[in-house]
Each structure stands twice: as C-alpha cells, then as structure tokens.
C-alpha cells in the first residue's frame, strides 16, 4: 500500500496557544484510521488544516502525491479530500436532493472531461447516494424535517457525492443511540469497501475499536501514540491522558 495522505511537521498556533505541535501522520490508501484524543486536543484543528479551512503555519500536507499547502478548501475537495462537519451543516433552503447536487456540480463536473454528467445523471446519482444512506424517501424534503441521525447521514452522503478518495468523518456519531451508531459504522465500512480511505474522529470507543484498523492519539496538540488499536489503548501514556495518574 502507498500513503495517500502524508502530514509532515504540521504546526498551528492561535495567538500564543499551540494547537498543533509538529504532527506527523501517514494514512495508507484504503485504510481506516481512527483519530482520538480528549476534548481540546486538536483533532478538529488537524482536520481543518488538512482540509484547508485553516492554514497551517509550519509543516506540509501531501495528498495523493501532491502538496496541498496554500490551496483553499474547495480546491482540496476537488482533488478528492472530503469531510463531514462535527455539527451537521446542511444547505437549509435546498431539498436533500439538491444538497447532494452541489458537490456533484462543483467537484465531479468541475473536474471536467468525460466524467462531467448531465442533469438526468445527476438526479440518478443523488438518488443512489440517498438510497445508500436510507434517505431516498425524503429526497424532496428540506433538511429541517430530518432527525439527528438522518442529518448525520445526509452529511456523509454529501461528502460522498464529491467522489472522494479520502473521507474524514468528524464525530459523525456523537449523541446517537446504540443502534444508530451501528448503522453509521456499517455505512463507513461499506464506503471503505468501495475503496474510500476513511479517517474517523470519534469519542465513542466501541465504534472506534470496531472501525479502526489503526489508531492515532492526539493529546494537547501532540501525537502521543500511533499503531494497532489494541496496543494503543493499553499504552500507559494514552491511559494517563484519558484517566489521569
């Protein structure tokens, strides 16, 4: 396997506060990586730096063999790097169908060439995606009619509509019930089977252990562990970070 994402010496400060301190992270093509850490440890900041919502001050991010430094978020999405937001951010005035239409218009079609698709194909594609997350019955409804879990599914479907190579799922399971967590786990694994590399940020350890093939731990802006999930959760430093001494 080759590395699809390569983060090297990445650092980010907010004023005097060091949010991320020279993070090194490699993700292999087709891998499922879990990223955990206590609240405020810099997980979301790392995602924002990888996706271009924030610009890192030091270090670099390479994706699929290309340096992403200085590129804006939409350019990174077009290159195949999709994310979901921690709090769902649907396009409130658009139907679910049109929510998915936007990334198709602006990524798949914007990449141009033979892959660009016409209106009918877009509608079909949106239906497929909504079917995959079980929302096809609500295709013409507005996001405000959705329940929490449906909102998370829409968030994932919209990220998938961009046909990404790498999907970063930022706490898609927070606040969901036991069964709902299982549904999302199954969905993430299914996406991964289709060839999408997945980085999952999560607090629910059951889900993390089930999905992750590898686990990385951030604490106070530093990566303190990276390896097989079973070893990482027994690592004394990780235990100390979560439970204290």
């Amino acid at each position: 396997m080759t590395a699809i994402l390569h983060v090297e010496g990445l650092g980010k400060r907010f004023g005097g506060f060091v949010a991320l301190d020279s993070i090194e992270l490699e993700v292999q093509d087709g891998e499922r990586l879990g990223l955990i850490g206590p609240n405020g440890s810099g997980k979301s900041t790392l995602v924002n730096c990888i996706c271009g919502t924030l610009q890192n001050e030091t270090g670099s991010v390479r994706f699929a063999g290309q340096a992403l430094d200085g590129l804006s978020a939409h350019e990174r999405t077009r290159r195949g790097l999709a994310r979901s937001f921690q709090l769902p951010r649907p396009f409130g005035s658009l139907s679910l169908m049109d929510n998915l239409r936007i990334p198709i218009l602006y990524t798949v079609n914007a990449r141009g060439g033979a892959r660009a698709i016409g209106n009918e194909a877009i509608v079909a594609r949106c239906r497929d995606l909504l079917g995959e997350v079980g929302l096809v019955a609500k295709a013409d409804r507005l996001p405000r009619d959705l329940t929490q879990i449906e909102m998370r599914k829409l968030e994932l479907a919209r990220a998938m509509a961009a046909e990404p190579k790498l999907l970063i799922a930022d706490e898609v399971m927070a606040g969901l019930s036991h069964n709902e967590v299982d549904e999302i786990i199954a969905l993430l694994i299914r996406l991964n089977d289709q060839g999408v590399t997945v980085i999952m940020i999560e607090h629910i350890m059951r889900a993390v252990m089930e999905v992750s093939q590898r686990l990385a731990v951030l604490v106070a802006g530093r990566k303190i562990a990276d390896g097989a999930p079973k070893d990482v959760v027994r690592d004394p430093e990780v235990v100390k970070a979560y439970l204290g001494e």
């Binding site: 996706c51 919502t53 804006s72 978020a73 939409h74 350019e75 999405t77 077009r78 999709a82 994310r83 937001f85 951010r89 649907p90 396009f91 409130g92 005035s93 658009l94 049109d98 239409r101 936007i102 990334p103 218009l105 602006y106 990524t107 079609n109 914007a110 919209r158 990220a159 509509a161 961009a162």
Partner: peptide, 23 residues
C-alpha cells in the same frame, strides 16, 4: 450551477467551500 453555488453560499459558506464551491 452558478445559482446552486450562490444558494450554497447563502445557506452555509463553510459547507459550500467543503463541497467544492469556489466561494
């Protein structure tokens, strides 16, 4: 597509950018 992009910006600019819209 331009109109859909405008609407995406109106509804949520960060989400629009994450969906590939050059805001």
């Amino acid at each position: 597509a331009l109109g859909y992009g405008f609407t995406a910006i109106r509804d949520d600019e960060a989400a629009a950018e994450a969906s590939g819209v050059p805001t």
